[in-house]
């Protein structure tokens, strides 16, 4: 039971898909100007919309009293506290790029960065 040609084909296909998706994301979401927004949503419903450049520390509580504390600092967003069981959102690295998100699945809370206007110029040559 050695590694077979089809195994390698499969691996290459998945890698190609991953790389092209990654490239597409970088192309579409990578370029940022200073006016990105931090959007907070629960089940698709918007709870808040703040500038990424702000300094904020906000608590979001759902109908059952479950809490998440979000902080925006130095152009980065992080989840500082949460009383969810897995705390994956708190362990998540701070986000600062367009399209990135921190998601607290147990509380269905989504924080994402959006709307950093894309730069008008493609390349600057010096």
């Amino acid at each position: 039971m050695k590694i077979r040609k089809n195994d390698i084909r499969l691996a290459l296909a998945v890698l190609a898909a991953a790389l092209s998706l990654f490239g597409w994301q970088r192309y579409h979401y990578g370029k940022m100007t200073g006016n990105a927004r931090v959007i907070v949503e629960r089940e698709g419903e918007m709870l808040g919309n703040y500038p990424l450049a702000a300094e904020e520390r906000l608590t979001f509580t759902d109908g059952q009293g479950r809490k998440n504390v979000m902080a925006i600092r130095d152009g980065q967003v992080s989840m500082e506290e949460a009383d969810c069981p897995d705390k994956l959102c708190v362990k998540h690295k701070p986000i600062d790029r367009n399209g990135e998100s921190i998601i607290c699945l147990p509380h269905k809370l989504v924080i994402r960065i959006e709307g950093g206007e894309e730069e008008e110029v493609d390349v600057i040559l010096r």
């Binding site: 998945v14 990654f22 994301q25 698709g44 399209g99 998100s101 699945l105 989504v110």
Partner: peptide, 27 residues
């Protein structure tokens, strides 16, 4: 499932990394 729970397409942001990670850990 994360998409169904949160109704946010943004959960797919880490799809490329998760595809590659699944490949490596699977191997």
């Amino acid at each position: 499932v994360a998409y169904l729970v949160t109704q946010t397409p943004g959960v797919a942001f880490y799809l490329p990394i998760l595809l590659a990670a699944g490949l490596i850990t699977g191997l």
